[in-house]
Write a protein that binds this DNA or RNA. Structure first.
Lengths: 137, 137
DNA sequence: CTTGACATTGGAGCAACTCCAGGGTTTTTA
DNA sequence: TAAAAACCCTGGAGTTGCTCCAATGTCAAG
């Protein structure tokens, strides 16, 4: 497989694949006579795995760990569990703060629907006032 | 005010304040005889405003726009509204994808509670299988 | 035989900081 | 009073996960 073919097969950008190689996430593939990278089944599987984990928003560092776990089976999989737990915790935390954010922004947006001069803009007023309040709190 | 004082007052890191200055988000403050930056009330307000907007997860580019709107009042504040709407849309989209993510991760996590060899780890199996499915879909 | 699509490399750029070295200044403490 | 700690300065590098670029080489089709 040439790089664009494996890119199509995995849905990962060509540049990104080369980037993963530089980062050591995938093995450097053998080359054809012309110097083109020649990928095989193992690369495809590894890249598909990476893509799936990235879709779960895992960091490359975490993914690297998971890949290591697979290659070097340790005594137990507590490490894997911890990793997923950590990721889940991060996602939950981010969800919480985003929900608060949505509320704030919705309130803010409600401040301005009618008025029509920037000087009088309810949103800007609100932002300034809120900033004031925060600075002096 | 010296930089660490305004940093304390606004809750923004000293390095970040200098970074904002380099980026042109705040005016370059006058200097004391010894070359230290000397901030005044206007800087404080502007920084507090920036901090508040950052807390709403707005980009520096958006914040720059808001600051411009305040200084140069235009005919109406549709621009401000659009900006906030855009931000709200981004937050909502991110929330949606994070909720899906949370579900996925929770399911994944449920795969492994008991088994205890990495070779047998339900999570890893699941990730590999899912990646397979995706690659062949 | 030229045109176009692909491949290679190294390096720069993005956001939004964060940290560092290597210097100078001011304040505190012994 | 002197040494130590805490602050300030600058310019630049590092972070994450790509993304895009130029300059060059290779290959398939019309």
């Amino acid at each position: 497989m040439k790089i664009s073919e494996i890119a199509d097969a995995t849905g990962i950008d060509v540049d990104t694949i080369r980037f993963y190689e530089r980062k050591g996430l995938i093995a450097t593939p053998p080359r054809l006579a012309n110097g083109y990278r020649a990928y095989g089944q193992s690369h495809l599987e590894r890249l598909a795995f990476i893509r799936h984990c990235r879709a779960l928003d895992m960091s490359l560092a975490d993914i690297r760990q998971l890949l290591d776990f697979m290659v070097l089976p340790k005594r137990d999989c507590d490490d894997v569990n911890q990793l997923v737990d950590g990721q889940l915790a991060r996602v939950k935390a981010r969800l919480k703060s985003l929900r608060a954010l949505e509320k704030q922004l919705t309130l803010l947006r409600a401040r301005c629907d009618a008025r029509h001069s920037t000087k009088e803009c309810g949103i800007l007023h609100e932002l300034v006032a809120a900033a004031h309040g925060e600075a002096c709190a």
